[in-house]
Nucleic acid binder design. Structure first.
Lengths: 196, 196
DNA sequence: TGTTACATGTAAGTCGTTACATGATTAC
DNA sequence: GTAATCATGTAACGACTTACATGTAACA
């Protein structure tokens, strides 16, 4: 049940609409927890009913025919976020389809295996680039979210706020590096097996 | 929908009961895909209805009052397994509650943060030990499952069968090492932040 | 006699995906 | 005018979790 906490956490940096949250989830800094837009809209309505967030309907465009709903954390929402952060999380049990499939690669042709490793390599190379970019942004405190967050916190906490996020994103970058290396060793392995 | 393929893959090494499959999933070599026992029993019945596996009811114990159901792959099941292995898997989108939580560790006390990193460290140290053990077992071809699998395959494929599994388990070991290192750096970080 | 392991399920509920559906606004 | 983006949802289905439920067999 971490989706709600991911949402609460992002709203802690300031008001956002469901649309913005979906964007932030999928392409930007918070690619640690994946969620689709129907899930996000549904959960936001649920959080609103539980009074953990409050919605403000805003007109959109000059005519204001369209509206959007900007959500903010309530006091109760903030407390729930703090409570959650202060409980120890059990490690996630693995469920990795690529690794599972790779266990049985002897049933596939070398070309398919190469394609699988190449896809893995391309994906995680791109991810690595993203994470490294985010670490850089964080260190120079360049992201919007970080600016907003720091503005609302006392200066004495600034170091910790940045440091933990850098630690997470560096961890994600390390993971991506491990996947890139794994895929490269995999490609070398196919070649070796084919030569025999 | 990888649970079914995980089951088909394990049955490829020979007949097994739901109970044995659940054990194998959770504590032994195939800890790449997690599943609970109700899920496994349900999916096996479904696979049976779809004729991808066949069940043989066997008596258990000397009186044979109790029974167990041993499942084997059918020809169609084997074909489905081959088909699946030959399709390229899209990378899994991340959903990691520990990393998500760590992003907001500034809201937790240093002791809670230490406890979280220590839990992470202990878990992945244990996992690393397991994966390294499995790699050793595989290399010496010592596991039951591997013996059965090799017995049914032509000798020319033996190298590939072992090599791909070693590659996967080494990848899992590398991942565990990365998590151990991440948790250790995390513990050092808390200390540093507390000193300032 | 009691505990652990073996063995198999059902049922209720939550979480997550995919497809469907709608309409305004912006930029070309 | 038309395409992309902004913006918000519903509905159906499938995957997964947790609690409940039952009984045999082996071992001390």
């Amino acid at each position: 049940m971490s989706l709600r906490h991911a949402l609460l956490a992002m709203l802690d940096a300031g008001a956002m609409t469901g649309y913005e949250l979906a964007k932030t989830f999928d392409q930007s800094a918070n690619r640690v927890w994946h969620a689709t837009h129907p899930q996000i809209y549904t959960e936001l309505r649920k959080l609103e009913r539980e009074k953990l967030v409050a919605a403000r309907e805003e007109p959109r465009g000059p005519q204001g025919k369209a509206t959007k709903r900007a959500y903010t954390l309530t006091e109760a929402g903030y407390e729930e976020l703090s409570r959650w952060v202060s409980t120890v999380e059990e490690p996630t049990l693995p469920r990795d389809a690529t690794y599972l499939k790779a266990t049985y690669f002897e049933y596939a042709s070398p070309d398919i295996v190469r394609e699988q490793f190449a896809t893995h390599l391309a994906y995680h190379t791109e991810q690595l680039r993203r994470w490294e970019w985010h670490v850089e942004q964080l260190r120079s405190r360049g992201t919007d979210l970080m600016q907003r967050r720091l503005a609302e916190a006392p200066e004495s906490r600034h170091a910790a706020i940045v440091a933990y996020k850098v630690h997470v994103y560096e961890g994600m970058a390390e993971r991506a590096r491990a996947e890139v290396a794994w895929a490269e060793r995999g490609l070398a392995l196919v070649d070796r097996l084919e030569q025999d």
